[in-house]
């Protein structure tokens, strides 16, 4: 020690620095171990719940993969003959709630005169449709429960063309996997063919006996009591039949694609 002190000329800061270097790894080691121990406790697990775990990319990938798996399970569970319950008029929720990713006064205004429904993809007849032509088809009506992904539900009355009738009229390839929708509010979504052909799936043109109002999706909405609310597109401008997965507005952000109930 003495000789060393001499050689460095008893440089206090250097000694301190050296001492710190020696001790530092031990301190770090200790705190790392403490952290590991702490993260094993319930509190540690709770700590993860804030955001950090959700921000982890591999966790995200795993959760998305399970969501895709859940799509397949739901497709397999889906019974085309299982009907959603229907209700008497007295049970209609009034006023029926408005719900979208924008506020009610921001709902798009679509002019009936210039409106044409575009039909593309795996269909025999790709001509566009005017509203009157859709109104001339056989109409049906139902009072069903609309279930939102948030948990709330409301009972409403929708009328229009049975979507399976429409798909057959345009000569759609009903062996195709998907039917996709593009909307005037820049919303988009896609559904499985089995649900598209379900007897209660309506191309809704009316709400509660009157022309579908702007806030509920004029000129038309796809109404499916077998799917959650976000799967029911409003203000539809284009319908396409395809074998290519095209996701959806909410689905691309993490909502389950099948979204069936």
């Amino acid at each position: 020690m003495k000789t060393r002190d001499k050689s460095t000329g008893l440089d206090e800061p250097t000694i301190l620095l050296e001492a710190r270097k020696l001790i530092a790894p031990r301190i770090e080691d200790r705190s790392r171990r403490d952290f590991l121990l702490r993260s094993l406790t319930l509190g540690g697990v709770a700590m993860l719940s804030g955001c950090s775990l959700s921000d982890n990319e591999s966790v995200d990938t795993a959760l998305s993969a399970i969501s895709r798996f859940n799509d397949r399970v739901q497709g397999w569970l889906f019974n085309p003959n299982a009907m959603a319950p229907t209700y008497p008029q007295s049970m209609i929720t009034r006023p029926f709630p408005f719900n979208a990713f924008y506020s009610e006064d921001e709902a798009p205004t679509v002019e009936e005169e210039s409106y044409r429904l575009e039909v593309t993809g795996l269909v025999a007849d790709k001509r566009s449709w005017r509203l009157d032509e859709l109104r001339a088809m056989a109409q049906t009506e139902q009072i069903t429960r609309h279930i939102c992904v948030e948990g709330w539900s409301a009972i409403g009355r929708w009328g229009g063309v049975r979507f399976s009738d429409f798909l057959r009229r345009v000569g759609a390839d009903t062996d195709a996997k998907y039917v996709g929708f593009k909307c005037a509010d820049d919303y988009y979504t896609s559904i499985d063919m089995a649900t598209a052909l379900h007897a209660q799936t309506l191309l809704a043109l009316t709400y509660d006996g009157a022309t579908l109002p702007r806030q509920y999706g004029f000129p038309m909405k796809l109404r499916m009591p077998t799917k959650l609310g976000y799967k029911n597109p409003k203000h539809i401008q284009a319908i396409f039949v395809s074998n290519t997965y095209s996701g959806g507005y909410w689905e691309d952000q993490g909502y389950n694609w099948f979204g069936g109930s």
Binding site: S49, G50, C51, S54, D55, L63, V149, Q253, N256
Partner: peptide
């Protein structure tokens, strides 16, 4: 929110259904 998991509704649903 601090004691919930998922960050937002979509994330929470993914955790729940996994």
């Amino acid at each position: 929110s601090s004691i919930t998991l998922g960050g937002w509704l979509g994330g929470a649903l993914q955790w729940h259904f996994a």
